[in-house]
Design a protein around this nucleic acid. Structure first.
Lengths: 323, 323
DNA sequence: CCCCATTACGTAGCACGTAACAATG
DNA sequence: CATTGTTACGTGCTACGTAATGGGG
């Protein structure tokens, strides 16, 4: 029984029990992979994958038990390897972070700057994607940390910690009628075409909830992932932009209007995998991201059984995070 | 990083960091073992064993961390292997039990008989030795279960569950003066040479405590591990025997006298290693040994942090076990 | 001088890749 | 016939054992 055999078996399982697919992902040959699995099956004395129905392969009942234990073995092996890296070179290594566009664009630059200054020997990898993609990367162990706003993918294996809460702002061209209104109402805004981001990060659900409550229909004429795209189209007079209140560089020709009275605040979350130990610089990164996310606090939250317990334990922290 | 390398490193550590000694135990060559350790050290990037002082080798600080994690990996790997055995053949395998002579002689025969009847495909191995040896075998994983009377080796990694409590009996030849005494006192007994077992299992500490409390001196003229030896010498008139109240076959020419009013009761314990899963037939064996030792109860006790907590949780059970 | 660890070297085994074959829809 | 899994076969690596070489107490 070798560690590689366990990795192989788990990889096959995680690729819908498709050996060919798994072999391509693992960058190895399909016969070799198949053979190792057969050897393992021979050693343990039972079949792991039911291949009697070639079109819909699935693990046997005994195979599921094996897969569970194999995952435990590999988890410990990864912890060992990480611990070795930690004691050999505590401030060197790699850190992968998943985030969506607004965070990468507005939130992370400052964090990355101080992190690379503090840990020059750590290579930082940013994976940009939707919150769902980020959660997938987390689960697969491809990133150590995910940053998601508004949309949390609830999963028993993941732990989400609040980083901060933020409000919405409107952006309009200089000279736009709204720029003279002191405290625009939803009705004021609803008269214009709206430009915002397509999903969670900029608080789309909060937007729609607000319009629905006011029994108004906001015409979202355009959605774009990048803040600069939105700004460009606003500048061209295509409509009113609704963006996060995260401080970005001031854009000439645009006017920013506070909209915190119109929409609910949104929360940005940092997600980690439960039951994994992070490298020490990963904890440092989280603390740079949000000073309250200390290693001790994370340990406490990991000790909580469910995400609900975590949210409850952090309730007082949560209300203090409003920017 | 291979599982064997981890096994090797742990084996060396468990043999006082002596590679030669470990290689003999592992039935492999010393250079091969040494080489694998060096390869692992090379891979993780730091030395595991400090060999600068050849006469007193010891693990480095980083090595200790590695050893801890390596033990975790191997523990999970062993669980996996065991689970595989379990699903392949739930009622086949091997069971090793450590016990001292009195248990092997008086207690286990009935248990073994019903066990082998119920699990004919399980090969049973009894290791006879002192409680200390039994505890060592437990810790090293050489036996799944240890049975010890009176003497428990306290160890964080071990869990001791009470099987039953028993009293002492005197054995005298037919026609001996004591056989006519209704309820002999310590003073009555102290007038005769005493024959008993050399250590814990028969409750030697309880004996000595009783004599000391009564400010008497019991002359133990002879100690023997085997009950039959004691019986033989008692029959020859060498003295009065003090043995456990465990029911043995009646011996012609000997008279048994209850001595529960003279000495404290002793407890027989079943010891298992914490944090290991036993084969299902091992749980069955324990239940045959003592019907109250169910799998659920053992799971509860494992969940307790310390032996003291276990004893406290089982306090009510403990008082009901008196034979 | 004895015990322990390292180095040198030969061998057996196995993991892996390429290629051909079988099976299933 | 396209995709997936198995069998056949050659190769290169490596784990292991034997033997010889340092190295302290």
């Amino acid at each position: 029984m070798e560690l590689q055999q366990l990795r192989y078996v788990l990889a096959v399982y995680e690729h819908a029990c498709n050996v060919s697919l798994a072999s391509r992902r693992l960058r190895t040959s399909q016969p070799g992979l198949s053979r190792q699995i057969r050897l393992l099956e021979q050693e343990v004395g039972f079949t792991i994958f039911d291949r009697s129905h070639p079109n819909k392969p699935r693990p046997t009942q005994a195979g599921k038990a094996l897969l569970t234990h194999a995952a435990n073995v590999l988890r410990e092996a990864n912890l060992l390897r990480q611990e070795c890296d930690e004691v050999r070179a505590p401030t060197a290594g790699a850190l992968s972070v998943a985030a969506s566009d607004p965070e990468v664009r507005d939130l992370l630059p400052a964090v990355v700057a101080s992190f690379t200054a503090g840990f020059p020997d750590v290579s930082l990898h940013l994976h940009q994607g939707t919150p769902e993609q980020s959660a997938g990367l987390l689960r697969r162990g491809r990133v150590a940390l995910a940053i998601a706003t508004y949309t949390r993918v609830h999963d028993e294996s993941l732990l989400w910690l609040p980083c901060y809460r933020w409000q919405h702002r409107l952006i309009v061209p200089e000279g736009h009628r709204l720029s003279t209104v002191e405290r625009p109402s939803l009705a004021d805004i609803a008269r214009y075409p709206l430009i915002t981001t397509p999903h969670g990060p900029a608080g789309r659900p909060a937007l729609e909830a607000a319009f629905e409550t006011a029994q108004l229909t906001g015409r979202v004429v355009m959605t774009a992932l990048g803040r600069d795209v939105i700004e460009t189209y606003v500048q061209r007079g295509e409509g009113v932009g609704i963006v996060a209140s995260v401080d970005g560089p001031p854009v000439p020709g645009l006017r920013q209007i506070d909209a915190s009275h119109l929409f609910d605040a949104a929360t940005t979350w940092a997600g980690v995998v439960r039951a994994t130990q992070l490298r020490s610089y990963a904890y440092a990164f989280m603390e740079m991201l949000a000073p309250h996310l200390t290693r001790e606090l994370i340990a406490e939250c990991v000790a909580c059984g469910t995400q609900d317990e975590v949210d409850h334990a952090l309730a007082d922290l949560y209300v203090r995070l409003l920017l």
